[in-house]
Amino acid sequence: MWIYEKKLQYPVRVSTCNPMLARFLIEQYGGADGELSAALRYLNQRYSIPDEVIGLLTDIGTEEFAHLEMIATMVYKLTKDATPDQMKAAGLGDHYVNHDNALFYHNASGVPWTASYIQAKGDPIADLYEDIAAEEKARATYQWIIDMSDDPDLNDGLRFLREREVVHSQRFREAVEILKEERDKKKYF
């Protein structure tokens, strides 16, 4: 089971109301390489992965939900005081007619989240390589958002999230090595 903790993993601050930045950030909420995809991908792969890496998938998958909450907090703070006119000017008119200022799982272009963003192949190496690629793609996305953002407070939180992708990628690479070692042991002894 999961226990919610009433705290953000890392403090989230934004300088000003900025629905345009919120629109870009939604990519990491309901986009292909976003935090929802990450959490659901890893937690779903756990059931068929070798025992050696179930703990890692559980813990990284759980941390991704904390990241999802940070992104939601950023979007909430960037849009909570926005008027319909400001939403429209930021390109969020299409979002506003359907959701008002509510959050929704879609990407920066408004395409709703789909399970086809993620995979579970049942082959541990294939799954872990997908996970490494997912972390690298998420890291790159954070970088592109930081490059477009002029909000220093927001960027502090985004840099934290970008660094987490680097650590997750590293841990998944180590998991691949652990599985290869196990496989080689079985072959020769």
Partner: peptide, 22 residues
């Protein structure tokens, strides 16, 4: 105090993932 807990928990998350592979 909340910032202190966030800092402590960051260390714990990092150590957890590290120990998962070490």
């Amino acid at each position: 105090l909340m910032e202190e807990l966030q800092a402590v928990d960051f260390v714990l998350v990092e150590l957890t993932l590290y120990l998962d592979t070490h």
